[in-house]
Amino acid sequence: MFSLLRSMWLVFLHMFHKRETYQYPEEKAPLPARWRGRIALTRDPDGGERCVGCYLCAAACPVDCISLQATEDEHGRRYPEFFRINFSRCIFCGFCEEACPTYAIQLLPDFEMAEYNRQNLVYEKENLLINSQGKYPGYNYYKVAGMAIGGKDKGEAEREEPPVDIKSLLP
């Protein structure tokens, strides 16, 4: 009984506390860097698209709102031919970011995406691709993966030996 009265009293005292509300449109809330908001596709330090079209984000997505088609340029570099996120379905769980092996897909601290027309919530690659490395500067997937792409031949990635000369009989 006393605890009831005490809690009533404590709640009553909140009358004299400072209010926590951000008066949103006039006053923006400071969002932490890892806030899971709008999804973007980032670029590697050389300005190339980080996304290699591996489909892991799409597979991880619990609401299946990511679809893409991988393709390849003439030098063997993979990139998405199209990349589509249906934000009207997205629940901003961040699984796609977690699944991404190349740090390409990242959730940014931005939630102001409301639209009057639902169709406008379908983002294509040109809407998603940003000119930034996002949260993970310096990472370049092709520098560590064994595939040869334009400007990086076999054996030129980090921790790689030059290609084997299969005609050599040296031990």
């Binding site: 489909y55 997505c61 609401v63 299946d64 709102c65 679809s67 589509r84 249906n86 379905r89 379908v122």
Partner: peptide, 13 residues
Amino acid sequence: YSGRTAMQANVNV
């Protein structure tokens, strides 16, 4: 199977 809610979204959401 992935992308069910996005693969046709460019046509109609």
